[in-house]
């Protein structure tokens, strides 16, 4: 893949993250209401929210976006730090790490959703 494609994805995911983070904060504060973080954040509340499939999908997409954005930034740092000759190894390592993070995160989110809807 051309470097500009990766760079463009980095910029797009960066913009998306601003949007996703705003949505995350907004729906979170709507969820806990005026109760505050300590009292408002209960298992029952989160479990109720997880019943909605849209939230599950949203958080998986959010996770994938964060993972790509962070890993691209990390790749730039690592290529500079270790030198250009390590580029292939760095790419493989970061792709594996990213896939692991997204798969594990999705597994947790989906399991929680299934638990909440009582499957």
């Amino acid at each position: 893949m051309r470097e500009s494609t990766l760079w463009l994805l980095h910029i797009i995911t960066g913009l998306l993250l601003v949007l996703f983070f705003a949505v995350h904060l907004a729906e979170f504060s709507a969820l806990v209401g005026g109760a505050g973080y300590e009292e408002g954040l209960t298992y029952t509340l989160l479990s109720e929210r997880a019943q909605n499939i849209l939230y599950t999908v949203f958080y998986i997409v959010f996770l994938a976006t964060v993972t790509y954005h962070a890993n691209y930034g990390l790749r730039v740092l690592l290529i500079e730090w270790l030198g250009g000759r390590w580029e292939k190894a760095i790419n493989i390592l970061l792709i594996l790490l990213g896939l692991a993070a997204v798969l594990y995160g999705s597994y947790v989110t989906i399991t929680f959703h299934l638990m909440s809807v009582g499957v």
Partner: peptide, 11 residues
């Protein structure tokens, strides 16, 4: 120049 060691490496 559009490769991992081209212009995108410049910060």
């Amino acid at each position: 120049v559009d490769n991992p060691h081209g212009c995108w490496r410049c910060h």
